[in-house]
């Protein structure tokens, strides 16, 4: 069907004509209603602690470090610990980590470990958020995913995360953005939990304490 015929059939089913005014949708609930468990956390320290607690609970491994150079060294050591080959996302930090680790560089389909940088994280659920510019396959093909996350990028819940994502321009949204909560898992056989089905069975978050202001909006 053509677009016009298809939409006309739906409008007909509703008894609407295309020129009818559309009232605005209901106002979304506040952050306190969507994420009541983190609504009370008002300082960055307790927010970060909650992230560590929740990420660990869903099976991610969290290593806490102070400052950029310590982060690079820690991530490189993790790469060496878990693999003989690795791939890095398209950013300077991930490339530096790969270089520093001295393991063999390999394409994502052949690498043991993938290294990338998180754009944001969600304390309520222990989620890290990665953008397409990092590469879609680095974090999903290798069986180990190492993600570097800055403490100041941790948000309370999904409402704050989506507030950061809100933008007037369509193409300012990344073409792909993935919220990652723990390792790949399935319970398709008798509801028995098994990790590492198609994506990484191991997720290591290198959490970096850094000085400086929080990112309030998306850096372009």
């Amino acid at each position: 069907m053509t677009r016009d015929d298809f939409l006309a059939r739906i409008a007909g089913a509703l008894g609407r004509s295309g020129s009818d005014v559309v009232a605005p949708p209901p106002e979304p609930p506040s952050a306190a209603v969507v994420s009541p468990s983190t609504a009370e956390l008002d300082d960055e320290g307790s927010l970060v602690l909650r992230f560590v607690e929740r990420a660990s609970a869903v099976g991610a491994i969290v290593r806490r470090v102070r400052g950029e150079s310590e982060a690079l060294a820690c991530a490189a050591a993790v790469v060496r610990e878990y693999g003989l080959s690795a791939c890095a996302a398209d950013d300077d930090r991930a490339r530096s980590i790969l270089e520093l680790s001295q393991v063999a560089a390999a394409p994502p389909a052949e690498a043991d470990v993938g290294v990338s940088t998180a754009w944001r994280a969600v304390a309520e659920t222990g989620t890290v958020v990665v953008r397409a510019e990092e590469g879609r396959l680095v974090g999903v093909l290798p069986s180990v995913h190492v993600v570097v996350l800055r403490e100041r990028d941790v948000r309370r819940g999904l409402v704050e995360l989506y507030r950061d994502l809100a933008t007037p321009a369509l193409d300012a949204l990344p073409s792909s953005l993935v919220q990652i909560t723990g390792p790949s898992r399935t319970a398709d056989i008798e509801m028995t939990l098994t990790t590492g089905v198609h994506g990484p069975g191991t997720v290591v978050v290198v959490l970096v304490a850094t000085a400086g202001p929080r990112n309030e909006r998306s850096p372009e």
Binding site: R54, V58, T127, G135, S175, S176, Q179, S184
Partner: peptide, 19 residues
């Protein structure tokens, strides 16, 4: 409390993206 992966896909690959 959250599924392992939530993917937000906004259009196809853009210029300069590697995959």
């Amino acid at each position: 409390s959250a599924s392992s992966y939530v993917s937000l896909i906004t259009g196809p690959r853009r210029a300069g993206e590697r995959d």
